[in-house]
Design a protein around this nucleic acid. Structure first.
Lengths: 244, 244
DNA sequence: GCAATAGTGTCTGTGAGACACTATTTG
DNA sequence: CAAATAGTGTCTCACAGACACTATTGC
């Protein structure tokens, strides 16, 4: 393995990136939304082996010509399937081992994204394959996913549940304008437990990350103050997490 | 791109994992320790192009025959260089883009590890290349590292700084037996600010993650109560983070 | 005694949780 | 008026920070 007097330029000219066995590498994104009082993820039906006919996460291999970096690769797949540029995309974890893909040693970097359902164009994916929102609660019981994607979803859900304890991330799951009650419902959905309204409002409002934008008449009852995120790109971190 | 009536077994038999251009993939670990009142990382001198003669993180490509999964790959490299099985290893982030390696589009998954310096055997690495502890504070100024490893170190330091606010991770940087004062000094080193002794002791002791193990005479002054981690594999999470 | 280090008593402040209460709408 | 939904007043509690204090050693 000695490289005696070779210059760096000579070395690079003669280097063959395909000379060594390398793992397969892909990028997958768990896209969350909320609808029908359910946390849902976007899945795509595979039309090729392996796992033909199974649903899988939105993702695929990196295109070395097109993708500038990992996040861009994830974003490209996501935009292909949803028609929108995801407003929130965060890397979760990278999983790689011999067993997860029957073809070979394979690695995937998992992202998660938050999307308001009303922002997604009627799911006119580019491919022929079906794209579908699936309730998180059904995955693993009614449905098993391709590869280890069921586990990847669990990891992303765990991360989301954890982040919700000290950030206002769930705002990205709502339409641009929303009420504090709506936001609280999303928190409750994700955490699967009730929160105290007073404490919730105090917490969110004192963070000063929302701006008021008019009030809206409800079907019945007192009208609601509506808000939107002051800066959607900014992730506020609360000084104390919610109690577990 | 249609695969008409091919069976899954036929498909797998004829699948060539090397048929598509894929990014290079490697695993790198930022190994932290503390010595001379400094946070240090373990670096290896490269004896091959590219970046021959520069220092880089402990890492390398996955061995598809030997490594069961990503963490095992990281651990193997680490054990090669330190002679110990790292007691704490955590995935930080995965970075991939066109620019970071002059050879090709390349991806690395970065881990960080915490090691008490006295546990590392006198750094008899298997390779011929030099292995060295370097102060984190010197990286980027006095020393620039191979590839983007300087940035990778920064990411790991940021993660460590953040985790220290709500865990007792720094205990892994100390010998098996340590005093609360020693532990506090490590926290202060990482956070780069003084902590209140009373609050610190109350916090750590009330977590009940330490067990007393005798007292030790100091050079001068009152003898110290020594402790060790009750369960080194368990990471306690404090209900509130330290103030920023 | 003094210097040096370990360790405590106790007050303050902040922000989460609890829960009874008020406010504003429709019918 | 009642029902429904939005929003508040205010108490308690846990725990981090501040800081003056005590404890135990060597010299």
């Amino acid at each position: 393995m000695k490289v005696p007097g070779v210059s760096e330029s000579d070395f690079l000219r003669t280097y063959d990136a395909r000379a060594f066995d390398r793992p397969n590498f892909s990028v997958d994104t768990v896209v969350f939304t909320v609808a029908d009082e359910q946390l849902q993820v976007l899945l795509v039906k595979r039309d090729q082996h392996p796992f033909r006919g199974y649903f899988s996460l939105v993702g695929g291999f990196v295109d070395l010509e097109v993708d500038q970096d990992l996040q861009a690769a994830a974003l490209r797949r996501l935009t292909d399937k949803t028609g929108v540029v995801a407003p929130y995309l965060e890397q979760v974890q990278t999983v790689g081992n011999q067993q997860r893909d029957p073809r070979c040693w394979s690695v995937t970097t998992v992202y998660f994204s938050l999307l308001a359902k009303d922002r997604v164009k009627p799911v006119t994916g580019t491919g022929t394959s079906a794209v579908e929102w699936v309730n998180v609660s059904e995955i693993g019981s009614n449905r098993s996913l391709a590869f280890d994607h069921g586990q990847l979803v669990s990891m992303a859900v765990e991360r989301l549940r954890n982040k919700v304890l000290y950030t206002a991330l769930p705002a990205h799951l709502l339409p641009e304008q929303f009420s504090l009650t709506q936001l609280q419902r999303i928190y409750e959905l994700i955490l699967n437990r009730a929160l105290e309204a007073k404490a919730f409002r105090r917490r969110i409002l004192s963070a000063e990350i929302l701006v008021e934008c008019g009030s809206k008449q409800q079907a019945r009852g007192r009208p609601t103050q509506m808000y939107r995120l002051a800066d959607p790109r900014y992730t506020y971190v609360f000084s104390r997490p919610l109690d577990l």
